[in-house]
Amino acid sequence: MTATNIERGRARRKPRHIPLHLVLAALVIYFLIPFWWVIVNSSKDSAALFGGTSALWFAPDINYVENFKQLFTYNGGLYARWLANSALYAFAGGIGATVLSVLAGYGFAKYSFVGRRAGFSILLGAVMVPATALVIPTFILFSRAGLTDTVWSVILPTLLNPFGVFLVNLYARDSVPDELLDAARVDGAGEFRTFVKVALPLLRPVIVTVLLLSVVQSWNNYFLPLAMLVDNRLFPVTVGIGLWQSTASTYGAAGTNLWSIIILGSLVSIIPLIIAFLSLQRYWRGGLTVGSLK
């Protein structure tokens, strides 16, 4: 909103800031080292991985193709299935959570109904309830209901996103003027139509932010699916890689070079989110200011 002002202010000074750039460069190296490591080491077979080649440089023979083949054929191509599961959980959970958050956040911001105050206080409290502390009780509950080890056992709990409601509420209070809504109502639009036509477009930045945050949350979720799922064909990629890692750390895994595919599997699994973040950055940056600027 004030970006142009800032750019103008900056343009006038235009210092070079060489020491600051050096600091930044050092920071970038630190933050990128693990990425570089995973790129380099997914090219190695196990002998090269553990056999004393430099951890940050390629071994003489590059094994990407071989490792890729192994990654997507090991255990009957299970890895591909894990990716698909991750995508399903992330989208179903993320979209669901966003829809609920937007509706509720808007409702809390724009309607005064009985129980609104109490509801909102409870919501604020819920933002503080540790999500992982809920996993085990939810698991026990689901297992009584016979819901564990199904896709629902992973998707349903991710629908709960009190922080999303909170963000939308905050944003809607500031960015959706009541006058605009009233004007639409005067024109004879129904409440829901007003919401869709007037409020939703205004809420776009916060919607993208909540969506992105919830998709990331479900894509990266580990504890919940770890607890809920037994059938490894339902695993998301995080739990799957954890499974491989523990298999590689057990003696019964003789004969398979799991570490190479674990590392390559890690690399492949982080690519989609990196792309999503890089290409959507202008949205989430806008949305993240919500709540920090009051």
Binding site: V28, F31, I33, P34, L49, A55, V237
Partner: peptide, 28 residues
């Protein structure tokens, strides 16, 4: 962007990568 990137990485995978980097036998 680069400094923000680790946020997009599942904690599981971040921990795994660092676990390797900590190795005294073959880590940097």
């Amino acid at each position: 962007l680069m400094i923000f990137l680790p946020y997009a990485i599942p904690t599981v995978i971040g921990a795994l990568m660092w676990g390797f980097l900590y190795s005294r036998n073959f880590g940097p």
